[in-house]
Write a protein that binds this DNA or RNA. Structure first.
Length: 188
DNA sequence: AAAGAGATGGTCT
DNA sequence: GACCATCTCTTTT
């Protein structure tokens, strides 16, 4: 089941906890499908010192100022590729970072891509999700609400957790007081 | 179990 | 030239 775009046009801290339980799908041209249930996210907004959009629009973050439901992919520390879903109205500069998923389909492929990692280390971090789902910059700007696209997000009917664990965001040095990290319990 | 450091490259000042 | 929305490996307790 696809998700209505208006659902993503709300503010990131509202969308983020409700994104828990949604299905992230990535297909290769060879037809290999990897899918997982989103279990950890973080919200980033325009007036947020920790957000890429805090200092205004640049070539890198321009997708975040575009329409909701599209993918914002960025390279972290020169190595990792991290996937966000743009939220809010066009021009807002908001997104939700997908930090962790639970693999549902294509586990064999994920194990291959994440060679040498234990099961629990497969997709428990944004860079790890990027590797497991083979996300790269070519996906930047892709419409994640179109199920025909190689990478997309869908609603498989799993309800969001009743009491998501809320906590501080990770790896940032600003606005640590904003509790905009949401996770399906139990934590780690 | 915890702490430290290197990898690695695009982006912005 | 500095700074990262990270991960992994090594060293130390």
């Amino acid at each position: 089941m696809t998700i209505d775009r208006a659902w993503f046009e709300r503010d990131a801290p509202i969308v983020a906890p409700e994104l828990l339980g949604k299905r992230l799908v990535a297909a290769t041209t060879e037809g290999v499908i990897v899918a997982g249930r989103i279990i950890e996210v973080e919200a980033y907004t325009r007036d947020d010192p920790a957000s890429h959009t805090f200092r205004g629009q640049t070539p890198r973050n321009s997708v975040m100022f575009g329409p909701a439901g599209h993918a914002y992919v960025y390279i972290s520390y020169g190595i990792h590729r991290c996937l966000n879903v743009v939220t809010g109205a066009t021009g807002d500069g908001q997104a939700v970072l997908i930090r962790a998923v639970e693999v549902l389909d294509g586990l064999e492929t994920v194990v291959e891509r994440r060679a040498g990692r234990s099961h629990r280390e497969l997709t428990n971090g944004p860079g790890k999700v990027g590797e497991a789902f083979a996300i790269d910059l070519s996906h930047n700007g892709l419409d994640l609400l179109d199920s025909r696209n190689a990478v997309h997000v869908a609603d498989d009917g799993t309800p969001p957790p009743v009491g998501p664990v809320v906590g501080p965001r990770i790896g940032i040095t600003e606005a640590l007081e904003r509790p905009w990290r949401f996770r399906v319990p139990p934590v780690r």
